[in-house]
Amino acid sequence: MPLSLRPPRKGKTPNYEIRGTYLGVYVERTAGTPELRVAKRVLKGIKEAIERGEYRKREEVAEAPKPPTFADATLAYLKAGGEAKFLGKIIEATGDHALRDKPLAEIDQLAIDNAARGVYPLAPATTLNRQFYTPVSAVLKHAGIELKIKRPKGWRGSKATEWLEPDQAFAVIREAYAIEPEFGLFCLTLLYTGMRLGDATEEAILRGLRLEQALLYLGATKNSEPRPVHLPPIVVEAFRKQRPRPVRPSKGTGGVLTNGAAGRNRAGAGVPFLERHPDEKLFRFCKGGRLYKMLYLALDRAGVVLPKRMRGFHIFCHTYGTWMHRYGGLDTYGLTRTGRWKDPDSADRYKHTMASAEARRADLLPVPAAKPRALKGL
């Protein structure tokens, strides 16, 4: 069989293999690369070495140990329990700027920037930071490489923030209760705790609710750290007054039922809300289109108009941060110490929701004794 390349085989090897005989010399080895053009160069080099009489089988050559690559570091990071999300796409990327087979010693800021645009050519800076720079930084730090990575310009996103004024928020909560009592309690809890949607729908269970301590204990959050969430009196009282989930009628009760009226009962239907099984989810909702439609309906009925990018449950988080700054008197670091924000930079946006004390001193500036004609009548 003439000397030729065999393509990568899924589940066996990601690289090209070189097999066959050339000038009476049998070769069977890996090309060490998934790139066809690189593998062809390796094949050509082997042929030239055989022609010169210099080729020896790999097992006959005492090879120096190969330096660890980014793929090696990623594997070690994952085995140590690192976050796998977003790393798959980075490792699967190929091309001149791909990080997978690049030795760790050769990875610098330029290599990371080029690789990022190779994986996400059109992504905004916020996506690049979240889905490329952050996981790459985590892998390198685990490998002991303390490289200070410069994030792409604009990675923090806009600090422009929308929030609900009290009358708007109370109107939304009223409409949420009108749509469904449990949905009203759900929105009220988000408003007065600032919880992320995922924490409320996935992490909060009834066992963690301790009303005598005004506390909801989240065992695992987005930051992978347990977090106690304080419940203000209005939320504690709302939980205590929450009615059981309604029992749905069945066809066996007789009479004609409208479409959708009958069906499977919700978990805990008819049971006092706080007496359900302690391992049940605190709220029955799941993140999805139906839940967002309920919010949109509550916002519309309350007459609250928001920019499209803020028309979601995160408006409650922004409102919580704004109110805690405005009415609770917390500065950036005070907001961080609530446990809701891990990074002061994330909480810093809420200081922009109020004019500073220095700016309000403009009230002391001199004004004319007699109002100009344009101001008369004001």
Rank of each mutant, 00 (worst) to 15 (best):
T338G: 07
F285T: 05
R284G: 05
E51L: 11
D167F: 13
A80V: 00
A262H: 12
I149L: 01
L164W: 15
R243D: 12
T94C: 11
V229P: 05
L188F: 00
K351D: 10
A80C: 03
A98N: 08
R56E: 14
D343S: 15
A93N: 10
M310D: 15
Y192Q: 12
A374M: 12
R276P: 11
A80G: 05
R56M: 11
A214G: 14
M324V: 02
P166T: 00
A125S: 12
A84R: 06
Y177C: 04
T322P: 06
T221E: 13
L78Y: 04
P65E: 13
T201V: 15
A115R: 05
R52W: 07
E182T: 02
S346M: 14
G329K: 07
A160L: 13
A31S: 08
F170S: 13
P249Y: 03
T30R: 14
A220K: 14
E275S: 12
R196G: 11
C317S: 10
D96F: 11
R6L: 06
L36N: 10
R130K: 06
G289E: 11
E146Y: 09
G88W: 05
I46V: 01
Q168N: 06
A269K: 03
K150S: 07
P278L: 04
T189I: 04
K371D: 10
A111S: 13
V256M: 10
L5I: 00
T322A: 02
A357E: 15
R243K: 07
G194D: 10
L378Y: 08
L36P: 01
P249K: 02
L43Q: 03
G254H: 07
H230W: 14
G321F: 08
A111T: 03
R373E: 15
V119Q: 08
D72E: 08
T353N: 14
R240Y: 11
A238M: 02
A359K: 04
S346P: 06
P233H: 07
R349M: 01
A80W: 10
T336S: 15
T338W: 11
A298V: 00
W163V: 00
R360P: 05
P246I: 00
F285K: 09
A200Q: 11
V38F: 13
D345Y: 00
W155A: 01
K376D: 08
E83N: 14
L128H: 07
R210M: 10
V42G: 05
G154I: 01
E358F: 03
L140Y: 13
R196C: 00
Y292C: 01
F183H: 02
V229R: 06
R284L: 09
L185R: 03
L282M: 03
T126C: 08
